[in-house]
Design a protein around this nucleic acid. Structure first.
Lengths: 138, 138
DNA sequence: GCGACTGTTACGCCGCGTCATTGTGC
DNA sequence: AGCACAATGACGCGGCGTAACAGTCG
């Protein structure tokens, strides 16, 4: 309530596991304080986590996310960092568009293959069992 | 030329590495004969590889591909297997569509964020830095 | 003394890449 | 004797899941 959260609190709030939060800490994306062995997350930790999960949703790797967060923590030259971030974002949009095209291509190839298989099945039903073309033309 | 290929032949032809072919063998997707320690790939091995790479292109996992190939090798009930394959394919198309939507969502979220960041930059240029940690003239 | 919560350690998965090292054949 | 090609073995990455076990708090 006063701005410190247990690991379970954050996990529940953001729908991640404890393992995930510890993993992010191991990778130095988070660094909560401790009371003895117990992790205590501040509101800033919580805000970082929010950004981490945003980064993940839009497809950045954890190391990319770490880079950007670390840059952001350095308070100097903010405008430069913001511009750099913009550049990275737009580059990443390109990557995402490419992935999308790959998936569309896969869908086309799959539906095409399905057409062929369906044709094989029709042939069978019409004139009985024959040798189905195991290998593509050679 | 007579129907047996070396590992290097197949690697060149399909644009994969030797490591990949050995890995597929380790996962029992391929099982070439041997002359001593040396792998010899038959035309059927080659045809299997072709199917494996098709499966990969359309986004199946290696274990899914293995399942389907193994089913296909069992000569009995081919029509049933073809129908089962059709069902899997169409289910997979659904998965792919979902992935595509996730990517589209990510693109939207990213471009939205870019709009916000660009707005922050415009504000700075218009009326200077509003955070106290000001940067030197740029 | 139970259950809820926390901690650490460490191996597993997927699809290979990348050495390192050692043959074998021409 | 050199070069291309082949082999095995083992570790690495990314992003955690999943035990297994131990301790702490109410």
């Amino acid at each position: 309530m006063n701005g410190t959260f247990s690991i379970g609190d954050l996990a529940r709030e953001f729908g991640v596991t404890l393992r995930t939060l510890r993993f992010y800490e191991d990778k130095r994306l988070l660094s909560p304080r401790r009371r003895g062995p117990v992790r205590l997350y501040s509101r800033r930790d919580r805000a970082r986590l929010k950004l981490i999960l945003l980064g993940k949703r839009v497809g950045f790797s954890l190391s990319q996310i770490k880079e950007m967060l670390d840059l952001y923590e350095l308070k100097d030259g903010k405008a430069r960092h913001l511009k750099a971030a913009l550049a990275r974002f737009s580059a990443h949009v390109e990557v995402l568009r490419h992935q999308k095209e790959d998936i569309e291509q896969a869908i086309r190839e799959l539906t095409h293959t399905m057409g062929i298989v369906a044709g094989m099945l029709r042939d069978r039903e019409e004139r009985g069992d024959f040798f189905p073309a195991a290998e593509p033309a050679e």
